[in-house]
């Protein structure tokens, strides 16, 4: 996984709350069996509207999404993160995220930072005042900057460390493999087993 320290690029004022993962990527796109190539699926329903914010020329090549509260709620589909990533987003800021979405983001190198409602409004105003302006999300400082405006975001320490180091989850866990094996030796015999099939 690539290391993430600072992200600079076009920021999108995404004035919507309660954006669930069905909106981020509708179910029909989940049929693919690959791990990449989901850029066309992102917000597919809304993108048919020419006025939709991501269709505006100013926001082409966007890297940071500033969304309303409860972003990424609903279905656990990780495809939501892949679609954002494939479209070019490297960070999403919101006052509140769906739990599973936030977890998925950290694992795919997409920074999900929590900001206050007031700061969200400030960022939206700054982005709208100057459509297409670059913003910088600094994971070291835990801050987002647009020109003079700097706001702080929150991200849990573990996810931050992993993003900064670019660490892969499974490799990390397998460093503890001896303990897993030891744990397995203590499991009761009546715990369910799927094999042999009965």
């Amino acid at each position: 996984m690539e290391k993430v320290t600072t992200i600079t690029g076009v920021g999108v004022p995404f004035r919507r709350s309660n954006v669930d993962t069905d909106q981020i990527i509708p179910a029909v796109y989940l049929k693919r069996v690959t791990k990449t190539g989901f850029e066309d699926a992102l917000f597919a329903g809304w993108r048919q509207d020419p006025d939709f914010v991501l269709n505006q020329p100013a926001y082409q090549g966007a890297r940071v999404l500033v969304a309303g509260s409860d972003f990424g709620t609903g279905s656990s589909r990780e495809h939501a993160v892949w679609a954002l990533r494939d479209f070019g987003f490297r960070a999403v800021l919101s006052p509140r995220f769906g739990d599973i979405f936030r977890g998925n983001s950290g694992k795919q190198g997409l920074l999900a930072g929590q900001i206050s409602e007031d700061d969200t409004e400030r960022l939206w105003k700054a982005l709208e005042a100057n459509p297409g302006i670059d913003m910088t999300v600094d994971l070291v400082e835990r801050s987002a900057r647009i020109g003079e405006l700097t706001v702080k975001f929150e991200i849990d320490e573990y996810t931050r460390w992993r993003l900064l180091e670019g660490l892969d989850d499974i490799g990390l866990t397998l460093r503890d493999e001896a303990r897993i094996t030891e744990f397995e030796s203590t499991r009761e015999p009546w715990r369910p087993r799927t094999l042999p099939a009965r």
Binding site: R77, E78, I100, N104, K107, D169, I170, T173, I180
Partner: peptide, 18 residues
């Protein structure tokens, strides 16, 4: 509880989750 595809891979490989 529900998990994402990365976690599915994690459980397949390690039978654990952080």
């Amino acid at each position: 509880f529900g998990i994402g595809t990365s976690e599915v891979e994690h459980v397949m490989a390690t039978q654990t989750l952080p």
